[in-house]
Write a protein that binds this DNA or RNA. Sequence first.
DNA 1: GTAGATTCCCTAACATCTTTAGGCAAAATC
DNA 2: GATTTTGCCTAAAGATGTTAGGGAATCTAC
Lengths: 201, 201
Amino acid sequence: MTGSTPRAEERPRLNRDAIVATAAELADGHGLRQVSLSAVARAVGVRVPSLYSHLQGTTDLMAGLTALALTELADRGDRALAGRSGRDALVALADVHRNYAREHPGRFEAAGALDVPVTDVLQAAGARVAEQTAAVLRGYPVSEEEQVHAVRLVASVLRGFVELEAGGAFGHRRPSSGESWTRVIDALDGTLRSWSSIGPT
Amino acid sequence: MTGSTPRAEERPRLNRDAIVATAAELADGHGLRQVSLSAVARAVGVRVPSLYSHLQGTTDLMAGLTALALTELADRGDRALAGRSGRDALVALADVHRNYAREHPGRFEAAGALDVPVTDVLQAAGARVAEQTAAVLRGYPVSEEEQVHAVRLVASVLRGFVELEAGGAFGHRRPSSGESWTRVIDALDGTLRSWSSIGPT
DNA sequence: GTAGATTCCCTAACATCTTTAGGCAAAATC
DNA sequence: GATTTTGCCTAAAGATGTTAGGGAATCTAC
């Protein structure tokens, strides 16, 4: 009788979004690798099998995490790009990604997971992020047919730098990675400004 | 009596290197995620606890995999850079990384694992790879103090592109990612050639 | 308002994987 | 040839993922 746990009032209800949100907190705090159904169940205060009422298993949880991260990233990108163009836009978008990775390392890792089943939500968020890069390029002399290559370049630089920095690959050596970040974005800006002269030989 | 398994002659002996090599094969074939002590033990024909005579557990196995991959990458880099300089060297080093990722996706993934305990072998291999990038930069007008930034740029571009391509992020859309690769390396070459004009404002 | 359907969480059970403890036989050492 | 060492084994325990099925609270419909 002592076990008359009145959880009903302290815990409003459980749903897929709440579970994924908890997983996101865990990922940011302890690393994506530590996210498991067990850990999430402990965190939300239910038994593991109960989670199966809301999602289909580990894979589904990871897909939800990836979709959440990409959506948040896309939302920040939209806000950052509003009213900006050219170099300003490039810097703003790049900083969005870098700052997101710093604030939410676990989610950012999830956003980069490329082995997750593609859902419609995920596809949509991914498309938004890609479109933002394309939008930035409109401020540079990049032709329609060259755009794909430029988009891939920007994506590569952003992902590579942010990932290496987050992983500690740049150590804490002098000069700081922040200085390198400025140089890298400068270099990218320069490349894009003179893109038309790179064109197909 | 029927169980007089004469394994001794068909299986020479087991050691750490052989175990890690088997793990590398599994990683390339089925993905790094699928590599486990169980899978490796099955593949080499022993029981799981037997592996503990040769390595300390899962973490140690992963560290071994990372060290193996980085060492192989460094070996290829040395061979590719011999006798080359400037743009030739840049293209050669970049292709080494891209081709290694295509030939050995699992090992490449392991090479990029940034959450593995740093051993001396691993540290040495990592240093060799970093030194190769620095060597390439000697063919460009990059000052001593600017070198760090340029190294970080090159590392970011390579890692970002190769990872995105390996993950299928560039899809199979036209134009092919191979074309983008050429453009990206061209752009990188151009940036490095004019690096001296980027310098600190 | 109450009967029935649905929802949501539970326990039980099983498979897989990691790790530790301890045994046994072959190989190496003296 | 006796002893120590080596390398593999079985046994066992703990963690995780998944499925099956039960029971109570909530919702729906008369």
